[in-house]
Amino acid sequence: MTLWTAILVAAAVAFGLKLAGHLVPERLLAEPHVKRVTAALPIALLAALVATQAFVSPGGTLALDARAAAVAVAVVALLLRAPFIVVVVLGAATAAVLRALGWAA
C-alpha cells in the first residue's frame, strides 16, 4: 500500500463515519453499552499512543529517552492548565534541550 492510498482510504473512512452519524437512525447506536465503549475508544488509543511513543524506541525496544521526559513535562504543564500549544512546545523544547546537552537520546 502506498502512503497516498492509505491517506485517501483513512480520510474516506473518517468522513464516512461522520456522515453515517448524520444519516443512520439513532436507535442503532444509542444502546448504552455500545455508546460507552465507543466513547472510551479515544481514551484507550491515545493512552496507548502516549505509552508507545514515550517508552518504545523506533527500533521497537523499550527505552527511557528524551520523549519520556517530554511526556513528564507535558503532564506538569497540563496540571498547571497550560493550553494545548504550550504543552506541545514545552514537550519539543524538553527533548531538544536534553539532546543538545547530550543528556538523553
Partner: peptide
C-alpha cells in the same frame, strides 16, 4: 534535533 518526535508525545498527552 528540534524535539518534534517528543512534541507528538506531548500532543497525545494533551489530547488524552
Amino acid at each position: 534535533r528540534w524535539g518534534l518526535d517528543a512534541a507528538a508525545c506531548a500532543a497525545f498527552t494533551a489530547l488524552l
